[in-house]
Design a protein around this nucleic acid. Structure first.
Length: 538
RNA sequence: GCGCCCAUAGCUCAAUUGGAUAGAGCGUUUGACUACGAAUCAAAAGGUUGUGGGUUCAAGUCCUGUUGGGCGCACCA
């Protein structure tokens, strides 16, 4: 059931009948109930182009609205809003539909099966995942869940930077820690990795091989480190309910000949030149502020090169769109990457980059500067141990991407019960326990439900699909959290005002059981989109 | 110096992308359990949307100046 769409149709018809040339209109829900159940500002918009009094236009439109079951009353509010009051009984007709669709309720097909690749997290395997990556992981995963639900074919991809200098540094770091354990005194270089996990890896090596690896070349330590860290990362992501379909490796890209392939294309397009014994890519041609070195004077590729090859590879795999989720500290990289895509001969719209702002960690009321050096970054592991996956997922999901959010770890530890996620889950559990009381039966026609609390609730349930679509289009999972919170509120209000179970009145009880089942379904589907569980008991 | 992002209640965040009287939670104050789960509900207090100007029927939202904060400006990745 989609009352809003119906209304839009009815009004659009009236507009055409009135002789105005408009092909789409938007009906919205006013904040104030005194402004109707729905309203539209279309008269003002028409007035702008025609230079007529909007009130007059609104009157014309109203007069041309045909009789129907939905609209009960129409009002004009200055300067030209059309406020619509609907026949609430109509709302009851959609209840069964929600129940029938169950897990599919809210699904749509705006994606039309187009293929999207979402790359996220892609943290270097040189340490374990921390708070900032947790936000990116939550966002990427939520986005994928939402896109799938709205009819896109989605692949989730993690790009492992397992080559280049940072991996060399990892090898050096592990080796030095290992040597330290073996009693050799050596200082960690400033570009080394100082995390506790590096020490643990060194300990593992020592426990396994004793001192026998002292003569071993750096390569052994690199491989051992990458492998161990990658396993930890995968485990952490799994505990965070984040999964990937494709794990790509920079080493593989480098060994596959794809780099040469992409360089050839760039060369053919005339986008490469030599200067000062290095090779440069003309990214300025496509909006970058300066050209970029791709082959250094020592003959090595810069980071950009395997990344170009990697993105070309993704495009060649047949996606309609690539989405990269990056930390805002990489924003300087965007114009470069987009320019690179364009210089390969693709539209820059082929790739979409979502930036997430930094997470500021607050501990005991003070900001903690997170760095690999100091080692006081909070890891995903600690986060999950302290606040749990549901609370953490909800917390990250509820903030818009572009806000620099504060994460108060002290508060999170102390007050997990204050997290709004429990408020929502409580609504779900409450419903479950009511539904467990009695067997639920199908209702043909709803006759007894007639309260403002019930109507508000149903109305909200019907908004779900549109909210999901909007959050997909805007890449904004936080719309889901806002929505489901409001839905939970309306349920709690309904619950306190109207009893569901009345032993002496079977019809009354059954109708309401069906109603709250819709709420349960909607809450569950919504929470699922942000990776949060819907427990039956709490 | 140049560029990107942000600024909304004491705190943490929303605001149907330009709509009507800017909303929630936390915290503060006050009520409601002999009711299907009180992890709940009802109510009060709290705002010149950092600040000046502009665009229009209408601006937290768009343009512009300015202040404060975050981040980035490599032949690192």
């Amino acid at each position: 059931m989609n009352i809003k769409k119906e209304l839009e149709k009815i009004i659009l018809e009236a507009i055409k009948k009135s002789g105005y040339n408009i092909d789409s209109i938007v009906v919205e829900k006013p904040k104030e109930k005194s402004n109707g159940d729905f309203s539209t500002s279309i008269a003002m918009k028409i007035a702008k182009t025609l230079k007529i009094n909007p009130k007059e236009i609104a009157e014309n439109i109203i007069n041309n609205i045909q009789n129907n079951n939905i609209v009960e009353k129409l009002e004009i509010a200055l300067p030209g809003f059309i406020n619509i009051y609907i026949n609430k009984k109509e709302l009851l007709k959609g209840i069964n539909e929600v129940i029938e669709q169950e897990n599919n309720y809210g699904k749509s097909n705006i994606g039309n099966n187009s293929k999207i690749n979402v790359e996220f997290v892609s943290a270097n395997p040189t340490g374990i995942l921390h708070l900032g990556t947790a936000r990116g992981a939550a966002f990427g995963d939520n986005l994928c869940r939402i896109l799938k639900f709205t009819g896109y074919i989605v692949d989730r991809e993690y790009y492992i930077n397992d080559a280049g200098n940072q991996i060399k540094n990892l090898g050096v770091s592990v080796k030095i820690r290992y040597e330290n354990i073996c009693g050799i005194e050596k200082e960690m270089p400033s570009e080394g990795y100082f995390g506790k996990e590096i020490i643990k890896i060194a300990e593992n090596i020592y426990n396994k091989y004793g001192k026998s690896k002292i003569e071993e070349k750096g390569n052994f330590f690199e491989k051992y480190g990458v492998e161990t860290l990658l396993n930890i990362i995968k485990e952490d992501l799994e505990n965070f309910r984040v999964s990937f379909d494709i794990w790509s490796s920079e080493t593989e890209i480098r060994n596959s000949g794809k780099i040469e392939e992409s360089l050839k294309i760039l060369e053919e397009k005339g986008n490469i030149y030599e200067k000062e014994n290095a090779k440069w890519l003309m990214t300025t041609k496509y909006g970058d502020d300066k050209d970029r070195v791709i082959v250094k004077t020592d003959g090595e590729y810069t980071y950009l090169v395997p990344d170009i090859a990697y993105h070309l590879d993704k495009i060649n795999r047949g996606y309609d769109l690539l989405i990269d989720v990056l930390g805002s500290d990489h924003h300087g990289y965007i114009s470069r990457l987009k320019a690179a895509i364009e210089s390969l001969g693709f539209e820059k719209e082929k790739i979409e980059i979502k930036l997430l702002q930094m997470v500021k960690l607050i501990r005991d009321g003070e900001e903690v500067k997170m760095s690999k050096r100091t080692g006081n970054a909070v890891t995903i592991r600690e986060l999950l141990e302290e606040v749990g996956t549901d609370a953490a997922r909800y917390f990250f999901a509820s903030r818009a991407l572009e806000t620099q959010m504060d994460f108060d770890i002290t508060l999170a530890q102390k007050k997990t019960n204050e997290n709004p996620v429990y408020y929502i889950q409580y609504a779900h559990a409450r419903i479950c326990s009511i539904l467990n009381e009695k067997e639920i039966k199908k209702i043909k026609e709803y006759k007894t439900i007639d309260s403002i609390y019930a109507y508000d609730l149903i109305n909200k349930i019907y908004d779900f699909k549109e909210i999901v679509e909007l959050s997909a289009i805007k890449r904004a999972p936080h719309l889901i959290t806002n929505y489901v919170y409001e839905l939970a509120t309306l349920f709690h209000v309904y619950y306190t005002n109207e009893k569901v179970l009345k032993d002496e009145d079977e019809n009354y009880t059954q109708e309401r059981m069906n109603l709250i089942k819709c709420v349960k379904i909607t809450i569950k589907n919504a929470l699922n989109l942000i990776g949060v569980t819907s427990p039956e008991k709490m």
